[in-house]
Nucleic acid binder design. Structure first.
Length: 241
DNA sequence: CAAATTGTTTAGCT
DNA sequence: CAGCTAAACAATTT
């Protein structure tokens, strides 16, 4: 689940803000931690990168969906959720996710690196990315301390839009190329959000899980790239090293 | 149906 | 100690 999807989740939960759910689930929280959520109302929901954040009065909860996480609103999967909120006839279930109580709240979050945030800063992204000249662009884009919210789909699509090879080194790019990469990443995240909401995300994928380059019709290369060894789909002709 | 995967954390090694 | 690697986790989709 990538950043834009979490923003959509926030919107879907807005109608429940101010309400007091019955809370349960199989998440491994201590008795004391469960107690922090029971009988409390949801005061606020927000996102930071791939983190979904819920404030129960004085307590912040962080849900991270990792690779396989999902959620359902009034449409249970019929297996035990990690976390469940029930409001009268409405229920929300979160599956296969990590659930954490944030002891020190959300004061440590830097909103300026969240690609979906109003406070996002292109300048900061540029400064941060320049600090890792030895890294491949594919790793830089996936670095959550620089581009919080960017995942493997966004990485692949942005690199194709930039006609940039995933294994190019940050240090080999000039400032204009880096600026363009940073801006394109933000822009694509916004598109991802719009397309996902309209349910037309997949049909807009250019290279992710695709076989042929939409530009030259050559067969795309499929390779695990970078330190992260995440799958990259790219065209060796259109995306030069 | 086997394989791949919208991801991160932690332990343990060099 | 910095930096890397393997392992663990987990369930749907292709």
């Amino acid at each position: 689940m990538e950043g834009p999807s979490i923003v959509i989740l926030v919107e879907e939960l807005e109608p429940f803000v101010g309400k007091k759910p019955k809370v349960d689930g199989s998440a491994p929280l201590s008795v004391a931690e469960w107690k922090l959520l029971t009988g409390k109302c949801i005061c606020e929901v927000r996102s930071w990168g791939k983190h979904f954040l819920i404030r129960f009065e004085e307590t912040w909860v962080r849900i991270h969906f990792l690779m396989f996480g999902s959620y359902r609103i009034n449409h249970s999967r019929g297996r035990p959720p990690k976390l469940r909120f029930r409001f009268g006839k409405d229920e929300i279930e979160f599956y296969t996710c990590s659930v954490k109580i944030l002891e020190q709240g959300i004061s440590d979050y830097d909103w300026s690196i969240d690609v979906m945030s109003k406070k996002w800063s292109a300048g900061k992204a540029l400064t941060n990315v320049k600090k890792m000249p030895k890294s491949s662009v594919c790793d830089a884009l996936m670095d959550q301390s620089i581009f919080a919210g960017v995942g493997n789909i966004i990485k692949n699509e942005v690199l194709f839009l930039q006609r940039m090879h995933p294994e190019r080194r940050i240090g080999d790019l000039n400032t204009e190329e880096l600026k363009s990469l940073v801006r394109s990443t933000r822009a694509y995240c916004k598109k991802f959000y719009v397309w996902k909401k309209k349910n037309i995300l997949k049909r807009n994928w250019q290279v992710f899980r695709k076989k042929t380059c939409p530009e030259c019709l050559r067969t795309l290369t499929k390779k695990h790239t970078g330190i992260g060894q995440r799958r990259s789909f790219y065209c060796i002709k259109c995306q030069k090293k």
